[in-house]
Design a protein around this nucleic acid. Sequence first.
DNA 1: CTGAAAGCGCTTACAG
DNA 2: CTGAAAGCGCTTACAG
Lengths: 342, 342
Amino acid sequence: MAKETIAGLAKRLGISKASVSYALNGQSGVSDLTRRRVLDLAEELDWYPSSSARALSRSRAGAVGMVLSADPALIGTEPYHMGLLAGIEAALAESDTALMLRMVGNDPAQEHAVYERWAGERKVDGVLVFDHLLDDPRPALLDRLGLPFVLHGTPETGAPPAFSGTTTDHDVDAATIIDHLHDAGHRRIGHVSGPHRLLHEKERIRGVRERAASHGMEVVQYEANYALQAGHDAAVTLLRPSETPGAPMTAMVFGNDLMAMGGLLALRELGLRCPDDVAIISWDDSLHCRLAFPAVTALSRNPGMQGRVAAELLLDLLDTGTIRTTSMPPGELVVRASTATV
Amino acid sequence: MAKETIAGLAKRLGISKASVSYALNGQSGVSDLTRRRVLDLAEELDWYPSSSARALSRSRAGAVGMVLSADPALIGTEPYHMGLLAGIEAALAESDTALMLRMVGNDPAQEHAVYERWAGERKVDGVLVFDHLLDDPRPALLDRLGLPFVLHGTPETGAPPAFSGTTTDHDVDAATIIDHLHDAGHRRIGHVSGPHRLLHEKERIRGVRERAASHGMEVVQYEANYALQAGHDAAVTLLRPSETPGAPMTAMVFGNDLMAMGGLLALRELGLRCPDDVAIISWDDSLHCRLAFPAVTALSRNPGMQGRVAAELLLDLLDTGTIRTTSMPPGELVVRASTATV
DNA sequence: CTGAAAGCGCTTACAG
DNA sequence: CTGAAAGCGCTTACAG
């Protein structure tokens, strides 16, 4: 059986290609009867219009892109990004939009190169971008390329947004975490963040510092990179007695689940008990936190929902050109054994 | 700046579109000088040929598809599939082939519908398919749709293969696991497998049974579904004294890492110690196994490499039409505390 | 080695 | 409401 085309259907039905096209796309210009006959025949033949022909004539790829940049060895260990991906995919599937996925290393140049390529080839109609950086070059790059985008995790400014994105109130999340530790009696804590070039880490750090100060708590900041090993090393460094003159540190906040796991391993090595000697809390929840021993208290941020919202912003931008910003609900603290009061 | 096209480049250079096309695609039919001028101009303008125009005229989408079917709630918790995905993506990127990703629930009909759609729209040139089922309907479906595919994890038959795929010798893997447990002194063990409708589980079960028999060991089989809870329930069931008349079961083999984690949780609830009372071993390695307490002995199968090989088989099939089968190297046992001899 | 032309399979003004 | 025709931006025989 040769591949059917719209011309073939038209011939079979004795009508023009235009009528078939109008009927398929739900546009006016065909009688109800004709439309029915077209749809019935397409159904019967299991026929769908060619996506590339459609893309070419519509100047629309029908796909959006997402590049996941991470250490290749770590890919798949980051539950937060996988949750995002699942949410994004679900929203896109509902709108018949395909998802083009690329994974690159941590080098920003690779990510930029993918955008240039996609824009040049008109392979995708828009992209989803993650983790707003300080002086992030990507918005300007994407504007220059004419590639619509949504930036997941962008700062809330008073002004009307320059591009679409999702925002999170990190002060609220920081308060949730710090208040919980304060209530449990902690007065001197460590905060192991992700890289400071990430805007949201800057905001979290400020939120933690200010909330802690309001309680009269002391915070030691430590910059790390979200890897398990980094969390481990941070804990070893911060908990070495020589590093903490004065009162001992009794709790540690980790910027993600993997670092929290690393911190937990470090405690074991150091012969410290959790939560008795040091309590641990993670800024991301995941199965790792649930399965750890002791299970780790974590801020649950619902990545699936966040991905869905980001995807919907992008679809809306592509359909209507509307630039807007949606704020994410605050995270919910899942209290587990790692911060139990003794 | 209006979007450049191949006609624009031709005009600027005072040559025909055909020459530009030949030059870009590395085909003969242009002088070296002309080719250079074309490539230089494209580079200077940051210009790439339109993927949809190319797809239409070549009748090739330049993309392959992959549908991940899993419980939406579990997506992202399955490290094995994420590792596969990373390996696949790496191989495809090297061949300038895009990856179209879809996630659907566990209902096979949804997966089939995606294939029908992709084939009808000629949206992808081929697909990667996972987990060969008993009486798997997918090979016949894909053949009917004319959609080339590679089936990752297909049985090794003596005959020339009917389709491309990767094979694994589950007998060897089973022997690795069983020998390890035998060496550690276990004589009566539980084997918690994934669903029996998966061909590779059938093969693993047979492999375990036969190897254990050769050592005079006793095996109790239990069918589960790869979820954490299922592993938990399996352990509770198998370790309840009433279930194991006679000698107690001293070790359990779990079909994946999540079930092994569930098993570990169950042991804690039952007041049993690991490895002292019951040893645990997982057929997949992952960060979960490494972080568990005690850390769980696991068979490492290198999913990234497997994904890469599967993708290369598909690319080869698309380029040359070669149907072939590659066998995966046996897994390597990573021995950890969960099977330490006391 | 180069150019003019047809073709890939749709969509969409434009006449009727 | 319907049909003939141009156009989307490439690729590829076919002449020269």
